[in-house]
Design a protein around this nucleic acid. Structure first.
Lengths: 257, 257
DNA sequence: CGCCTGGTTGAGAATCATCAACATCTGTGG
DNA sequence: CCACAGATGTTGATGATTCTCAACCAGGCG
């Protein structure tokens, strides 16, 4: 099972190499996700000019750290990123997982310093977008301004969905919802919705979902036993998407008893 | 205890009557919260012109409803507002409480329809800010654009703090944190940080914090027994702010021996 | 006055966390 | 290629926190 590496590219979703420094917004395969195509060619070029593409980040490297001065937001180009905050009482809280085409760092705008840290969960390439320049450009490109308002609003709406998940749902529902979320985001990038590799550890999943590692592990085992998922380490195959959805929606009939 | 209505104005924070239609941003006592004073007089006037001030809303009236076309964000001028979403499975999730000076409705921008509903928890006055006009104005006023980016970022950061609360904290910590949050927001409006009236029901508190009504009630009773709070119905007095903070931060020593 | 909504309190049950042991994977160095 | 160590993941037994169900109390309104 663990050799099914052929159906997707573990490093990203690009036809061109995602580590190519010369890639630009116009030819980036992710631009339908990252910028929902409201810009014309000339405008995209202007955006392109302010974006900085650095060398790929190694697993564990930081994009930015909590409390550092806010300068940029980042678009994930390949690989994956986790955002996490250390609370006053010193505990870590994973606040999000970010995949290619998604934007991370928007929580830093308010206070002009990052409210969380972001680090690569695997080798990753990112586009750094200096926010002051983005602001200036948005002054001239109404659709870009609108787009960024939308991106931020989307993050708000998603966080509020997550709130509901944590506030109302059982461990089974939370894990099911995360699997479906990752599946949907994979699909959006034209990858398999049924089969993917989790870039994060069980610990991170538990932290994100407000569960312990043990509970995450148990839930995944149970899902496997019930034929909803096939779990091989970090390799996940959704074997019964409909039932997975019904679990996530709270159809209680998955007590295995 | 319940007659201590003299120290604050239950309807809002205005020196002028908050229901006055003629109030404007320049003379609004909340403008330090709502717009962190980055605009000059002339610019405030321009903002003022696009803002619609309607009659006050009665308790229970809606500002907007989930799935309606998105048109405006709303600044609370007096009273208080709750935002809530109905999930696919039909359950209600309270996503936020909004007090004078705060902005609600920003979750609607992404999909061009409101992701939640908002209703007045008591008689309330709001400023309706049509978003298309706000966008246009932001094109011309860089500091306004920046301000709105900041407001949205703040909402993201706050939601993520709430995520941590729901994901990691006990019932005691959650309730303590909410009391402290309301206290701080009261203080920001130059009202008592120690004494306030909760505009929302226990049910709403529980819903928001991911707890049952019974648990909220028990926690408040326990806090009262421990001398941290005085609870008289919806009237709350913080009698030991320091201990309340230490509970919220997870100092476990509040087991009542 | 009685009904209805909202709030409090109690007893038992369920979910998930904790603690502990063990298994597996990864990478390193021989 | 194998052996080993540390990190990561799984499984089991037990217990605590919170939910559920139920009774009861208080206040507002017809």
């Amino acid at each position: 099972m663990s050799e099914a590496a052929n159906t997707r590219n573990p490093d990203g979703t690009e036809t061109r190499c995602p580590h190519d420094y010369q890639i630009n917004c116009a030819n980036c395969r992710l631009n339908g996700i990252c910028l929902p195509l409201a810009l014309d060619v000339h405008e995209v070029d202007q955006l392109d000019e302010i974006i900085q593409r650095s060398r790929p980040l190694q697993k564990g490297e930081h994009l930015y750290r909590q409390d550092q001065p806010f300068t940029s937001v980042f678009a994930v180009r390949s690989g994956s990123v986790k955002a996490y905050a250390i609370t006053d009482s010193g505990q870590e809280q994973v606040t999000g997982f970010y995949f290619p085409g998604e934007i991370v760092g928007m929580d830093g705008i308010a206070k002009n310093k990052y409210a969380s840290s972001a680090r690569a969960m695997e080798t990753a390439a990112v586009c750094e977008i200096p926010f002051d320049k983005l602001g200036e450009l948005s002054q001239r490109l109404p659709s870009l301004q609108r787009h960024f308002f939308q991106l931020m609003s989307q993050e708000i709406a998603e966080d509020q969905q997550l709130l509901t998940l944590l506030s109302k749902n059982t461990a089974d529902q939370r894990v099911a919802a995360l699997m479906l979320s990752i599946s949907a985001r994979n699909k959006r990038r034209k990858l398999s919705a049924a089969n993917f590799r989790l870039p994060m550890s069980r610990t991170d999943i538990g932290n994100y979902l407000g569960l312990t590692v043990e509970t995450v592990s148990r839930v995944l085992s149970r899902f496997q036993k019930l034929g909803v998922l096939a779990v091989d380490n970090k390799e996940i195959t959704i074997t019964d998407a409909e039932q997975l959805r019904s679990v996530a929606d709270g159809a209680a009939g998955i007590d295995g008893g």
